[in-house]
Amino acid sequence: MMKQIFILAMMLFATSGTAIAQDVALKTNLLGWATTSLNVGVEVGIAEKQTAQLFATINPWKFSRDRKVRFWNVEPEYRWWTCQRFGGSFFGLHALAGEYNIKNVDLPFGILPKTKRGRHYEGWYIGAGVTYGYQWLMSRHWNMEASLGVGYAYSPYKLYGRCARCLDKNHRNYVGPTKAALSMIYIF
């Protein structure tokens, strides 16, 4: 499903107009890689001080001691730049959606209630937030970006115990950090 969404977004960006220098950027979040999460993003200039970004992340791994934080996430974002696009400060509005399967890991910020060993959560989420970030020009084609977003997410979930027995169905209304990025960017 995520592959189809990404391909569709790429086709929309590709057909939205003629790409000229400083109009398209390919990026990856180094903080995501530090947590073993595969990620890639595409950002496209849509006006003199505006860009649109689509970012996708997936973490399919299991870890030692029966721990896992499996998830996928897509995050479209609109950005308004204070000076010029792809350089300096920007403010953004982002949406987020995804699914997760988390076992024997306590997440920060009270994202999910803590569980006893051997139990796990499965669920999905959808939300939105605001972003502030800054992009440093390193060379003609390379930039570095730092950004932080806060917002709201709604997440229905199921809590499973041993033997895959559903123990609880509930939901969370989360307010807090919704994104953090330190990204390497290649601008075409």
Rank of each mutant, 00 (worst) to 15 (best):
R85W: 03
P60I: 12
R117P: 02
R70C: 01
E99I: 14
L93P: 11
V40L: 15
D106P: 02
G32D: 14
K116S: 06
L26D: 07
E99R: 15
R67C: 11
Y100D: 05
F91S: 03
G98Y: 00
E99L: 14
P76S: 02
G87V: 15
A97L: 12
H120D: 07
I102M: 14
F63S: 02
A47S: 12
I58D: 00
T35M: 09
K62N: 12
L107M: 12
K116G: 03
I58H: 12
F90K: 12
T36M: 11
A56H: 08
I58Y: 06
L54R: 04
P76Q: 02
A34S: 13
L31A: 07
K49P: 01
A97G: 15
F86G: 04
V105W: 11
E122L: 09
A47H: 01
I46T: 07
K27W: 00
R117E: 10
R117S: 09
I58N: 02
G32W: 00
W61K: 11
W33G: 00
E43V: 10
I58Q: 07
P108T: 10
F109T: 12
K49R: 08
D66W: 10
N29H: 01
E122G: 11
N29Q: 03
E43R: 00
R65Q: 13
I58M: 07
V42M: 15
